[in-house]
Design a protein around this nucleic acid. Structure first.
Lengths: 209, 209, 209, 209
DNA sequence: CATGAATGAGGGTTCATTCAT
DNA sequence: CATGAATGAACCCTCATTCAT
C-alpha cells in the first residue's frame, strides 16, 4: 500500500517523514494527530491517506524506515575487526552514542516506540524489533577470542554478565543525563567510568598474566 | 478530593479500582477511556467524577494506592536478617516474583506507569516513585557484611555489577515468559539459574576459602 | 414550596441566601452551579433541594426576597415630603446610590438578573419587576407641585425628558466608574454635575422669576 | 483560522451564520449549544469546528461579521448632509428603526451581545464595540450648526440631554412593542411622537424667532 | 496527484436533580 | 431534618478517515 510513497518527490517524502517522526515521538501513537502531521509537513489531509492506508500503516512504515536508516549506518560504522569481546562491546557503546548524538529525533521516536502502550501497534512492532535484534546480535559474538577467558569459564553466562553490566551502566548514565536535562551525556567522563567497569570484569573473567 | 472515595462501600471501591487498574495498564494514561472504566466498573459516568475530580487525579490515586498496597506486603514479607548481600538480593528477587505472581494486574499497571509518556502525569509520578525507591534502597544495603569481599574490592561498583546482573537476568526471564504467553514464569527453574549466576559472582568478588 | 425555607434556622437561611446571591451574581442563572452554592453555604446537596424544588425556584425566591429587602429600605428612607419634582428625583438618585454602597452584592445580583438571557427565567422575572416599578413610580409623582412649570407645559412629556436625562446621566457615571474599576463612583463630583443638568432643565421648563 | 469559512459554499455559510445567530441571541454566549447550532444548520458537529477553532471564535466572528453587515448598510443609508443636530438625530433614529425592521434577528443578537455577561467573551467584544462607537459618533457631531442654539447654551451638555431623551423615548417604544409582542413598532405613530419631543427640546434650546 | 470539506463517534467533564439512609 | 451517593444527558471539542472535485 505504502509502496507508492517511495516513488514520490524525495523532498516531500522527507517532509512527511520528519513531520511524522516529530509528532509520534512527542505524543506517542494514539495521541499523535494526523492533522498536526499534515500541517507540519505542509501537505493536505487527503495526500497522507493517499500514501498510507491509515495511521497505523504510517507508523509502522516510519518505524521500519528509521530502523533501516539506523541499521545501515550502524553496520557501516561498526568495527568488529578485533576479537576481544570487551573491545567489541565498548565499540558498540561508543557507536550507539555517536548515532544518538547524530539523530536525536530518531532515537526519541525509537524510545517512544519501544514503550508504546497502544495495543493496536504493539504487536506489529515487536515482530520487526526482534528481527532487528537477531541480525545485530549474531555478528556481535562471531569469532570472538575465547582463549582470553580463564579456563573453565562459563562463557555464555559470563557474556551475559558483561552485557547486563554495560547495559545497566548505560541506562544509569542516560537517566542521569535526563535528570539534568542534558541532551547528551558527558561522553568522556562516562567513557572513563565504563573503562573502570570493564577492567573489573576483565580482572574477574580473563586470565591474569 | 478523592478522600470521599475511601469511605465508600468497599465492594464498589474494589470494582472501581480494578476497572481503572485494568484499563490504565492496558492502554496507558492518555488512551485509557473513562467511559470504558465506568462500563467495566458498572457505575455511572457521573459517579467516577464524584469521587475523582478528573482523570489525572484518579490515575495518581491509583498509583499511590497500589504502591502502598505493594509496599505494605513488601516490607511485611521482606527478610533482611542475614548480612550477606547476595542473600538479600536473592530474597529481594524471590519476594518480587512472589508479589508479581500474586498481583499480576498491579504489576502490569506499575510497569505501564513507569513507562508513562504523558507529560501531564509523568512528573507527579516521579516524585512518589523516587521517594519509594529511597525508602526501600536504604534498607537493602544497611549493615551488610563487607568482610566477605576480597581485599581491595571496589564495593560500590561491585554491588552495581551484581544488581545489574540480577536485574538483567530477571528481565530476561520475564521476556521469555511473556513470549510464551505464560502469566508467571517457571519459578523453580529460574531460581536455580539465578543461583548459578550468584555463584559466579561470588567466586569473582568474594574471598576464596 | 419554598415556604418551608422561611421557618428555618435564620443563620442557615442567611448562609444559603448569601451563597446563592454571590454565585448567581457572578455567573448568571444557567452557569451558576448548585454544587458551588452548597459548598459556599456549607450545607448538603439534598438540603438545598429540600427547600427549593429546583434551581429556578431558588433563583426566583432569591430575586423576590432581595427585591423585598431593597424595597423595604427604599421606602423607609425615601423622603418625598417636598413637592418639587426635581427635588424628588434628586433624592431618588441619592438614595439609590446609598443603597448601592450599602449592598453592593445585591445590586450586582439585580443587575445580572435584569440582563438575564436564560429563557427559563426571563419571563418570570419580568412579572415581578414591572410590579415593582408600578408600586414605586406611583408615589414618585404623587402630589407634585405643577405650578412651577411654565404655563402651557406638556407636563407628562416634560417629566419624561427630565427622567431620561437623569437616567442617562446616571448610566454614564456608572459606565465611567466601571471602566475605571471603581466599586462606587465619586459621589460628590457626580452629584455636582447632576445639579448642573438639573439647573439646565429647570431653566428650560420652570417659570423664570 | 476562520478564514477558511469565507471561501465556503455561500448557501451553507448562510445556514451556519443564521443558526448561530439565532442560538446565541436566544441563549447568550455560554448557554448557547453548539449541538443546537449544528442541528439547526443541518451540518455535522465536526464541520463547525473545522471552520471555527472553538465556540468563542465562532461567536466573535459572528459579532464582527454582523457588525460589518450593519455598519455597511448604516453608512450607505445615513444622510448627514443637513447641519441641524435634531435633523441628524432624527435621521439616525429612523435609520436605526429601518435596520431593525430589516434585520430583527441581527438586532436581537447585538442586544444580547451588548449585555453579554460571560467573562470569556466580554473583553474581546468591547474592543470592537468601542471602535465601532468612535467611528460612528465622530461623524454624528461633525460640523453641526451651533448658531441655532440660544446664546450662552452649554452645548455639550445640551446635546447630552437631547440624546438621552431620544434614547429614552426609543427604548420606551421598544419596550411597548415587546410587551405587545409586535416585532416592529408602529413606525408612523412613534415618529410623530418623537417629533413632539424634538419640538419641545428645540423650543428649550434653540433661539426663538 | 492533490485538495480540504465533511462525517459522527468518542474524548473528559459538569450538571441539576433524586432518593435511600 | 439532613446527608451525599448516584444518575445520565448534555457540554465543547478532537479525531482518523472518506470522497467529490
Amino acid at each position: 500500500m505504502s509502496s507508492k510513497f517511495v516513488s514520490l518527490n524525495p523532498e516531500k517524502q522527507e517532509r512527511i517523514l520528519n513531520a511524522s517522526l516529530k509528532e509520534f515521538a512527542l505524543k506517542g501513537y494514539e495521541n499523535a494527530s494526523t492533522n498536526e502531521i499534515v500541517k507540519l509537513a505542509g501537505i493536505s489531509k487527503g495526500l497522507l491517506f493517499h500514501y498510507f492506508a491509515n495511521k497505523k500503516e504510517l507508523y509502522l512504515f516510519l518505524y521500519n524506515h528509521f530502523v533501516d536508516v539506523l541499521m545501515k549506518e550502524f553496520f557501516n560504522e561498526l568495527d568488529f575487526t578485533g576479537r576481544d569481546i570487551f573491545e567489541r562491546l565498548k565499540n558498540l557503546m561508543i557507536l550507539k552514542n555517536r548515532l544518538m548524538a547524530r539523530h536525536p529525533e530518531i532515537f526519541n521516536f525509537m524510545m517512544s516506540a519501544s514503550m508504546e502502550a497502544s495495543e493496536e501497534v504493539k504487536e506489529a512492532l515487536n515482530d520487526s524489533k526482534t528481527e532487528l535484534m537477531h541480525t545485530s546480535y549474531g555478528r556481535l559474538f562471531e569469532n570472538i577470542d575465547l582463549t582470553k577467558f580463564r579456563e573453565g569459564t562459563d562463557i555464555q553466562r559470563t557474556i551475559n554478565i558483561i552485557m547486563w553490566t554495560l547495559e545497566g551502566f548505560s541506562n544509569q548514565e542516560l537517566e542521569k543525563a535526563k535528570k539534568l536535562n542534558k541532551d547528551s551525556l558527558d561522553f568522556d567522563e562516562a567513557f572513563k567510568e565504563a573503562e573502570v567497569y570493564i577492567d573489573m570484569l576483565k580482572k574477574s573473567f580473563y586470565k591474569s598474566h
